[in-house]
Simulated scan of single mutants.
Amino acid sequence: MERRLTTQQLELIVGEVERLANRQQDELDRSEVEKILQELNLPPELLDEAMIQVQRKEALAKQRNRNIGIAIGGVTALVMLVAGTSLFFQNKASTIAKISVSQDRISFVRDGGENLNPVAKGAEIVYRVTLNDAPVGETLNLTCNWLDVAGKVAHTNRYETKNITTPVWNTACRYQIPLDASSGAWKVEIRAGDRSLKQMPFEVK
């Protein structure tokens, strides 16, 4: 049974035949190339070497284009990575900038609701802080610096909070005042990243 073609199939076949015919016209066999070389007073015996050189140049051009594509892709990925990193840190800084401290106090480890002042030497104490506008769904890297009467850091707590579930968030850090600590005005400071959230003075006796 003779197969019938649709109009669309016929158009495709005609186009393919034209492409093949044009390709045959563009391609020359070896004898035709040698004849052209002789007409140009060029040595036909160099044809094989010339063809090798042409193929090599074509391969190098393809490799160069491939390398350029890879380089462009790498640069694009790097730009996107830098932009994404920059945006991440901007968002992080913006989040930290919104945080404030609504309440802070110093208590014993077993919290009785007190706010100790003065603090006895040798006492183990806890700095309890309530944050406002804490980033819900994230964690915070916090630092507590305990500053002695000379303003030097006597002790540092660095820690990461649990995943924050509410914008009002309680956190705490602890320190045992040394028995040989200097008496006088101390401070404890809580920081989020590079930002100081609050300093609280207290007396050591």
Rank of each mutant, 00 (worst) to 15 (best):
V14M: 15
S94P: 02
I164P: 04
V82S: 07
L40F: 04
L81G: 07
K98L: 05
W169E: 04
C173G: 05
V17N: 12
K205C: 11
N157P: 03
L147G: 04
M80L: 13
K92Y: 15
L197R: 01
N67W: 13
I70L: 14
I96G: 05
S100K: 11
G193L: 10
L179P: 05
T161K: 02
Q24K: 10
K62C: 09
G113Y: 07
T165D: 07
G193R: 00
R191D: 03
R191A: 10
E58Y: 09
K57C: 11
V75P: 06
V188R: 03
L78N: 06
G122S: 02
V14K: 12
T76H: 03
T130E: 11
F202I: 02
A185D: 14
N117I: 04
G193A: 05
H155K: 12
S94V: 08
S31Q: 14
N22S: 14
I177A: 00
R30C: 10
T95S: 15
L116K: 04
E11H: 06
T156M: 02
T156Y: 08
G137W: 01
V109P: 09
R3E: 11
S31D: 15
L116E: 07
N141R: 07
M200E: 08
P118S: 00
V75T: 09
V119W: 06
V126H: 08
K162W: 15
E16C: 10
V75L: 10
Q90G: 14
L60C: 09
I99A: 00
L81W: 12
T7S: 15
V119D: 00
K35E: 15
N22C: 07
G151C: 01
Y127F: 12
K162P: 02
G112P: 06
G151P: 01
V204N: 00
V119N: 09
D48Y: 01
W146F: 00
V126P: 06
Q25P: 03
L179C: 10
A50F: 02
I164N: 05
K57I: 14
S107Q: 06
P201T: 11
V136G: 02
L12E: 15
R66I: 10
N115P: 00
Y175P: 05
A181D: 00
L12C: 08
L20R: 13
L142Y: 00
N41K: 14
L131A: 07
E160F: 09
I106G: 05
N65A: 11
F89D: 13
G73Y: 04
Q103H: 13
P178W: 01
K35M: 10
S86C: 12
K152D: 15
A134T: 00
D111Y: 07
N170T: 09
P118I: 01
E34H: 00
L116M: 01
Q9T: 03
L5E: 02
Q176K: 11
V33Y: 07
K205I: 15
A59K: 10
D133Q: 14
V14R: 14
R105Y: 02
N41H: 11
A192Y: 05
Q55I: 12
V75M: 09
T161L: 07
S86K: 06
I177W: 07
N117A: 00
